[in-house]
Simulated scan of single mutants.
Amino acid sequence: MDNMGFADPWAGAVQDIVAAGRRMDRFGWVPATAGNISRRLADGRIAITRSGGHKGHLTPDGVIEVAPDGRAVHAGDRPSAETLLHCQVYAFAPDVGAVLHGHSVASTVLSMAADGDAIVLSGYEVLKVFEGQDTHDATVRLPVFDNDQDIARLSRAVAPHLGRMPAGYVIRGHGVYVWGGSMDIALARLEGLEFLLACELERRKIGR
């Protein structure tokens, strides 16, 4: 993945998004029309999935271009309402090249069951997939933000925590957001996080 060698950089970004959608669908992280996927090009353009499409069956037409403020560049294109949350990450961190949003069972259930403002992940080897972690003997907080259909207001709640969320974050009853310097890194972090959340869910089932 990360098709930086494409003669047409836009085509490379689109292929990265299409492939990521299929991978996420294979694990059941983007049911129905849920989730969204974006990649930032070297020239600053942002490619993101069109609203309403199934991410496991994406075609190049399912990817559109948005401006840094989340508005569609081309007339008639309809970005997801949550595009602003992708753009927020890109604006904060110039080195981020991809943002992923999924709706897994584990992230949905655990975020709804969480009493506080975070899910705490401790002692797992896979924690090392996140930036700044080099041992299993660590604790990472996954912030939980209350769901809000007012995305601008939700982004304001997220803003103070940017830069302190190595595992990304989760919207309560909704799903996770992760990112990375490239699509490959973002996907690795998403897979790591979803594995950890699945482990936490299983531990609760057996009372451990």
Rank of each mutant, 00 (worst) to 15 (best):
D16E: 15
I17E: 01
V18P: 02
V18G: 01
G21D: 04
R26A: 15
W29E: 09
V30H: 02
V30L: 03
V30G: 06
P31F: 01
A32W: 03
A32K: 12
T33C: 09
A34R: 09
N36C: 06
N36M: 07
I37Y: 04
I37C: 05
S38W: 02
R39G: 13
D43K: 08
I46V: 11
I48S: 04
T49Q: 04
T49H: 00
R50D: 04
G52Y: 05
G53A: 13
H54L: 10
H54Y: 08
K55S: 09
K55D: 07
P60S: 08
D61T: 07
D61K: 13
I64K: 10
A67I: 01
A67M: 10
A67D: 14
P68L: 08
P68Q: 03
R71I: 05
V73N: 00
V73Y: 00
H74F: 14
S80Y: 01
L84R: 14
H86K: 05
V89A: 06
V89F: 01
Y90G: 06
A93E: 13
P94K: 04
P94A: 12
P94D: 12
P94S: 11
V96I: 14
V96D: 06
A98Y: 00
L100I: 08
L100E: 04
S104C: 10
V105A: 11
A106E: 03
A106K: 01
S107N: 10
T108K: 05
V109M: 10
V109E: 01
V109Q: 04
S111A: 09
A113D: 09
A113Y: 02
A114K: 06
D115S: 14
D117K: 01
D117T: 14
A118Q: 11
L121Y: 05
L121M: 13
S122C: 10
G123P: 07
G123W: 05
Y124W: 08
E125V: 09
L127T: 06
K128W: 07
F130L: 11
F130K: 06
F130I: 04
E131N: 12
E131G: 08
G132N: 09
G132T: 09
Q133W: 02
Q133K: 11
D137E: 13
T139H: 00
T139A: 08
V140D: 01
R141L: 11
L142I: 07
V144G: 05
D146I: 01
N147Y: 12
N147H: 14
N147A: 15
D148W: 06
Q149S: 10
Q149V: 00
Q149N: 12
D150F: 04
D150V: 05
D150C: 03
I151Y: 11
A152L: 09
A152I: 05
A152S: 14
A152R: 13
R153H: 15
L154F: 01
L154I: 02
S155M: 10
R156W: 03
A157H: 13
V158K: 10
